[in-house]
Simulated scan of single mutants.
Amino acid sequence: MRYLFSRFGFYLLAFVAAVTINFFLPRLMPGDPIQSFLGRLAQNGGQITPETIASLEALYGYSTNTPLFQQFLTYLQSIMTGEWGTSTRFFQPVFDVLGRGMLWTLLLVGSYLVVSYGITTLLGIWVAWKRGTWVDSVITVGSVVISSIPAVVMALLMYFIFASDLGWFPTSYAYDPSLDPAMSFEFIRSVVYHLALPLLSMVLLGMGNVMGMRSNMINQLGEDFIVMGWAKGVKDKKVMLQYGARNAVLPMITTFAMSVGAIFAGSLIIEIIFNYPGLGQVMFQAMLARDYPLIQGYLLIMTIMVLGANFIADLLLFVLDPRLRTELG
């Protein structure tokens, strides 16, 4: 338990540091949300008066006349109370705007984690078992080449080839706009159809995990307990899956936790290119509008997810790895 409490304390300090950066980072950007809103208001023929500016500053909790430290204290209070402010871009509570985008991002990222890590883990185990053969050479070289393509290039290639030119997949949205959201076969099929190409792009970008699993598996195959299993006449399938793969998967848990931030960053690019209505689209529009409350809300959610994933990984390692419990005990 001492180990778990120490890890929890570490992630709590990391959260405080991330929240501090989250507050100051948008304010280092040029411009401010009030001026951005006033610019759009002026373009639409609206009147700008001192009373209008004062009302906007009161509504969005941002004022150039308020000391930065006081703004920071107000921001911390809003986090604790769940009042994340109002979006200057969508004129709605930040929590509501992020909630709509979160649903589709979690669907995309969750599908990616299941499909990608399932495929790369099985492929890594297989090519390690077949190391030195043509299967090993083709799959390892291919996975490295594919995963080395930048996310934006991969997404654009998939978009222009399969969506724009061939027309096999839709070019935008999470489902057919003519359908009403409901738990019907037609709606679910439309969601899967619109998800397929963004998901395929992310899965291809994650093929580099094959090399990580392959290396872990090869290291396990050289351990004494593997040699002992063969010496006792244990079947190859049991040695590969129950002896080798079971232990080789443990480092992949840490790798997964450390890559959560990169996964969401990659999904942001994918969502923008495919016009997928997730958090990536929300963040993109928030940055264009200098929407401080929405940017801060997005970064806060990402912070919670990344730290939460790492803490869960620590818990899983503690439960699954008896060597860690013995060392800490």
Rank of each mutant, 00 (worst) to 15 (best):
F69H: 12
R2E: 07
N275A: 15
W126P: 00
L41P: 00
L204G: 08
A174G: 13
F264E: 02
T133Y: 04
P50R: 01
M202W: 06
V145H: 09
Y112S: 10
Y112H: 12
V114A: 11
N247Y: 09
P67I: 00
G233Q: 05
L250D: 06
M102T: 15
L205R: 14
A257L: 00
G297N: 09
H194K: 03
L268Q: 11
T88S: 06
V203E: 05
F95R: 10
I146V: 15
T171L: 08
G101W: 01
V19P: 15
M302N: 15
T105C: 08
T140D: 02
I149Y: 05
E57K: 13
L157G: 06
L108M: 03
L41M: 14
D96K: 10
A151R: 13
P50M: 01
L12A: 15
F185E: 03
S36E: 03
G244D: 04
L294D: 04
P50G: 02
V144N: 11
F169L: 05
S172K: 13
I188C: 02
M252V: 07
R89W: 09
G206L: 00
T64W: 01
I161P: 06
F10S: 13
M240K: 12
L157V: 09
P150Y: 12
I149A: 09
S178K: 13
L204S: 07
V191E: 01
V234I: 10
W104M: 05
N216Q: 12
Q296T: 02
Q71Y: 08
T255M: 05
E83K: 10
V153G: 07
Q220N: 12
T20K: 02
V144M: 14
I301F: 14
F162I: 02
F274Y: 11
I269Q: 01
I53F: 01
M305G: 08
I53M: 05
T133W: 03
Q92R: 14
L316V: 11
P277T: 07
N275I: 02
G101N: 06
N247Q: 13
V127L: 04
Q35F: 00
S147T: 07
V227Y: 09
Y298N: 09
N44S: 15
S190R: 01
Y175S: 14
V144I: 14
R27H: 14
D165G: 00
E51Q: 14
T255S: 15
L195E: 04
